[in-house]
Design a protein around this nucleic acid. Structure first.
Lengths: 254, 254
DNA sequence: TTTTCAATGTCGGAT
DNA sequence: ATCCGACGTTGAAAA
């Protein structure tokens, strides 16, 4: 850990350069100019600025989850003194974009070496829901068999595709949160495409989400489509593993 | 500015509580547990944690633009000592979500009062593109006349609505970046709604974006819809000149 | 409050 | 590299 409190701009500039590729945090009064996919200007004010190892730059105001200005990873960052300002230039190509910070004053500047091997584990995403249905299609309907996931069609990718107990093809669209009317259009497009490619084929369309509002059900019904409410179990892989370990620990095989 | 370097967890806890509603920054080794719309776990590692006035909490690793874990604004944050950890609990309702940070150690903790009246000004957004087409519809097609923007329909808001040189109505959907297949669904929904409300009306549908991939064109063609590639101008000429000057000033030659 | 859609979206995966 | 879709998307504006 290394830091300076209320340094001169020259000292802050030297300090920033000496940080190398370490995580750098600056609190100070700056103006922000951005030009690239869009263009923006932010007048002077005190902000929290973060420069990461990978070149990401974040400018945070006192409120909001989102940075008010930023550059994504793989941005080249340079520091200089110009016109009495400490200037941070963050430039990237692909697309060509530039963000310039002009610091009038710096309250604090600090860099850190972070030891972090942690990798986020998440569950409850669409892929997890699809997995759970794959493992046990019966949760949607007895006798249902899934034969494909992420099946490509001309109108997009079908989440799940299979056949019901009578051999009728079933197209299933999965949503991780409440289904919206657009999900109905999406499903309908797949169905129309399927019918178009396999003339006269009977096919069922099913929308699967933890919550399906009445309006969406109406839309589905009007189009001869079906729905299932399915709430996935939120379980992380290592928890599953832990559970299995514990199971075998207690003396049972599988 | 107030800060502690490598404080004890007890001192860090008191310090965090004393920060009140000021911007708080903690660098330390923590584990993160989140449960709400989804569920996630992040094992111990050193991270940069930001707690904002409005209750936003951000957990940043050394890389990436996005926080690895977070809570949005209007989250209630509490600090406590538990099981030898400094525990930060960030809870919100609507939806009910909880993020828990357990700090094993703290390298630095600091709070700030930021004076910031700055408000971001941006151009180059979809609204600006719509404006430019409004001012000169000829960029899309000679003789095109725009009569409405943000026209409400049951399936959403149409960006631009007008008539071509032969008096046929034209519905235009505008995208500020590359058009995706979902934009086609969107446009199609508007068209279907329009046809539904004005029986046997002829109507043209047009998707307008700076870039339209092959698959999207196919989707459009299959539905009898049209497209125009249109790249907007980001700013006035004198502004461009200024920016170019600054670019060569600060940038490398060439 | 709910719904809808834009965003400098970001990010990861597949082609 | 381009393309495509999910995201604990976030955020704002309109209904």
């Amino acid at each position: 850990v290394s830091f300076l409190l209320a340094p001169s701009l020259a000292d802050a500039c030297d300090f920033a350069k000496s940080a190398g590729r370490r995580l750098l945090v600056i609190v100070g009064c700056c103006r922000v100019d951005y030009r690239g996919r869009a263009k923006s200007l932010l007048d002077f004010g005190e902000r929290l600025v973060i420069i990461k190892r990978d070149g990401s730059v974040l400018v945070h105001q006192e409120e909001g989850r989102e940075p008010v200005n930023w550059q994504p990873p793989n941005t080249r960052v340079r520091y200089s003194l110009k016109n009495g300002f400490l200037v941070l230039e963050a430039v990237r190509s692909h697309p060509r974009e530039r963000m310039t910070l002009e610091f009038q004053s710096v309250k604090m500047i600090s860099f850190f070496n972070l030891q972090d091997q942690g990798r986020l584990q998440v569950t409850g995403m669409e892929a997890n829901i699809v997995e759970q249905i794959m493992e046990n299609p019966g949760v949607l309907e007895p006798g249902l068999k899934i034969v494909a996931t992420q099946k490509s069609t001309r109108s997009g990718v079908i989440d799940l595709f299979g056949f019901d107990s009578r051999g009728t093809p079933v197209v299933i669209e999965v949503k991780r949160s409440r289904a919206s009317p657009s999900a109905v259009s999406q499903l309908e497009a797949y169905i129309l495409d399927f019918k178009h490619r396999n003339r006269h084929a009977r096919v069922r369309g099913m929308l699967c989400a933890p919550q399906i509002p009445r309006m969406v059900r109406t839309l589905l019904a009007n189009r001869g489509l079906e729905w299932r409410e399915f709430k996935p179990i939120l379980e992380l892989t290592d928890e599953k593993q832990t559970t299995l370990d514990r199971w075998t620990e207690h003396g049972r095989t599988k």
